[in-house]
Structures are given as C-alpha cells and as structure tokens.
C-alpha cells in the first residue's frame, strides 16, 4: 500500500467504511509509516476535539414551560381560541412609527404620522406594535411611494414577508432611503388568516440643506 492510497482513504478508514481487506492494509501500513501515522493521529485528534466541544444543557424550567405550551397549543378548544385571537390581532394592534427614537405621531388619530428625510441618506423608522398574543407566520406587506426604497432592496416598491410575532411590543425596523425629492405614503399592512390592518406613514424627502425635521 502506498501513502497516497492511505491519504485518499483516511476518512473512510476512520468512518469504518472500508472493506475489511483495505482496512487491514491501511492498518498495517500505518504501523510502518511515520508520515501516515501522523496524519491519522491528527485526524483522530480533530474528531476527538469536535466530539468534546462543550454545549449548553437545556434549562429545566424552559423545558417544563415548553411542554406546557405544546400541550395547551394542542387542546381541542384551541380552535376557537385562535379564531378569537385572530380578530383580536386586528382589533387591538396598536402601532406607532418611531423615528430617531421619538414617536412621530400615533396613527390612531386622524393625522397620519409624518417624517422628513434627507435625500440619499438612510433613515431608520421603527414600527412598534403591541400584539395581544403570539402569532405564527403573520403576513406583512409594505408599499413604498415613488422615490423611496428600503435599504438592501433596490427597485422594490412592494415587499411581502412572513414573520412570527410575540405577545407584547414588537419592533420592526425599516431602513428607508429617499432617492428623489418628493413625498408620499408608506403603507404597512399586517394580515393574519383572514384579518388585516393597514397603517400609513407620510414621508417626504428634501435636499439636506432644506431639511427641517
């Protein structure tokens, strides 16, 4: 047996994937070849190191809670529970748009919130909403006015995605960029099963020199 053959088969040797004759031939070669012995030892050491990588133990409290959730999630009455929540999600969502850590305007009143942006600069708008519960795969739809886009999504005027939301306050960050001077409405729509709610945000962009925030 040549060293090259050992080299090619060293993994299969350690995985015990070789026919017995080949396995024995490699074993015999390694006993007499220092180079192949070193290679085999290194490979064994690596596998030993990988097998002994530390890992965190599961938290018993979490496990207990997770079991409870799995159980409750499957109760027959859950069907009705969910339908109640489904309407609740649309009815009780409270949404604010935040810009630069300040609430621009709450959209519950008749005035839509308004933010101003400098041309070609990213401005992060935070959409905060309180959810009455945990919901899986809630659909979000975002429509942008002409001349605006989300950083990282060039040319896309409309975005759709699904996300899980948690009970309580959820914060979504929207990194907006103004490409041209102008104004328009950003419309965010949140839908779950057959219920939905839309929110509108006025945005306008100006040359940086003319910007009054």
């Amino acid at each position: 047996m040549k060293c090259q053959q050992v080299d090619v088969n060293i993994e299969h040797f350690l995985d015990s994937q070789l026919p017995i004759l080949q396995h024995d031939a490699i074993s015999a070669h390694i006993k007499t070849c220092g180079t192949c012995y070193t290679k085999l030892t290194k490979e064994k050491d690596l596998r030993h190191a990988l097998k002994n990588l530390p890992v965190e133990d599961v938290n018993p409290d979490f496990l207990k809670e997770a079991m409870q959730k799995a159980h409750h999630n499957h109760k027959p009455e859950q069907k009705y529970f969910i339908s109640g929540f489904t309407s609740a999600i649309a009815a009780s969502l409270v949404v604010w748009f935040l810009s630069s850590n300040t609430i621009a305007t709450a959209p519950e009143n008749n005035q839509f919130p308004l933010i101003s942006m400098a041309l070609n600069k990213t401005r992060t708008v935070q959409m905060i909403f309180d959810s009455p519960g945990d919901f899986k795969a809630v659909k979000f739809n975002l429509k942008l006015p002409e001349g605006f886009e989300i950083a990282g999504y060039p040319g896309q005027k409309e975005l759709d995605w699904r996300v899980d939301i948690k009970k309580g306050s959820n914060i979504l960050t929207l990194p907006l960029i103004a490409l041209t001077v102008g104004k328009g409405d950003l419309v965010a729509r949140i839908a779950h099963i057959n219920k939905s709610k839309s929110f509108r945000l006025h945005i306008r962009s100006k040359e940086e020199n003319n910007l009054i925030l």
């Binding site: 935070q126 795969a137 979000f140 975002l142 989300i150 990282g152 999504y153 975005l159 995605w161 699904r162 996300v163 899980d164 948690k166 959820n170 914060i171 979504l172 960050t173 929207l174 990194p175």
Partner: peptide, 12 residues
Amino acid sequence: RREQRSPMAWLD
C-alpha cells in the same frame, strides 16, 4: 427560510 424572507430585522 422565514428569516431570510423577512427583509427587516426584529430588534429583539
């Protein structure tokens, strides 16, 4: 896949 589909990051 869900995370990749979501264009925005959830802060938490």
